[in-house]
Amino acid sequence: MKSTVDERRCVGHVRCHALAPQVYPLDEQGYAAPGERAVPAGREAAAERGAAACPEGAISLHR
């Protein structure tokens, strides 16, 4: 599974990071690090919860 954080939509609520810190690391601004990255094995459920928690709809998950 891969996650993509859309940096045009992310405004730093960090709900994703609060629920799944290993899946959604932060950048130096304290926003979710933008772009596509692989979801660590075994963290798929956390990745889904983190994406669902984003109030901006900035996160998509794909195989």
């Binding site: 405004v11 609520h13 901006e56």
Partner: peptide, 20 residues
């Protein structure tokens, strides 16, 4: 409750900077 996309800190680029 989950998910809970409340607007208490606002949304968009002016989102409350002190939310953390």
């Amino acid at each position: 409750r989950f998910p809970n996309p409340h607007t208490a800190f606002g949304l968009g680029i002016h989102r409350c900077i002190g939310s953390n």
